[in-house]
Amino acid sequence: MTAMFAETAAQLSPSPGLWIVLISAALTDNILLTRFLGMCPFLSISKQLKSAFGMGLAVMVVTGFTCVLNYLLYIYVLLPLTPYGVPAESLKLILFIVVIAGFVQLLEMVIERISLKLYFSLGIFLPLITVNCAILGASLFMVNNVAGKGYDGWDVLVYGFGAGAGWFLAIMLMAGIRHRIAGGKVPAGLQGVGITLIITGIMAMAFTIFQGMIRT
């Protein structure tokens, strides 16, 4: 069943290659700047470079691993059930959330156990991203890409980490900009989130420059 599906998908459109997958996930389809997903932690944690780094890293790791887990769940559990009338499309939304929440908890426990240093630089951000919509978004887009662009397991791995890396890049850029404007005079009504949102908009426009890199 699974093999059959994979075969058909491969015939429809062959996998575009890992480099293309990575660049499109991180830059042209930047999950934060083109989809505006994962905005809450992006706005609140981007004040300091150091915490932005930890947060970005945590999002990248979780997005990468949960994409793979959800891919396995989709291919080996949900798709084989579709011929029997099970609505995989609706069910995936619920199950993906559960998998992400569970994985984040597990990861927090593991990190705390293996290295306290890593826990303090990365782990304390994990509870904050259990419900980060960028992570769920990446898993859902992954399903679209599997069906539409013929992503295989390796592509999904690269796609997940690429999407996370895109988010990481965006929050690091924003933290850098906010660090630079920290001493500047921002009008009272725009201070904090206001000016950050405007800058995000300008950054999103700047990122459209990457659109031409990949022919779709």
């Binding site: 559990v77 949900l78 059930l81 029997y84 009338g85 609505p87 069910l91 199950l95």
Partner: peptide
């Protein structure tokens, strides 16, 4: 059947 299967899958996961 689909309802039972869907519920079982969700519960199992």
């Amino acid at each position: 059947l689909p309802i039972i299967l869907a519920a079982t899958a969700a519960c199992a996961v």
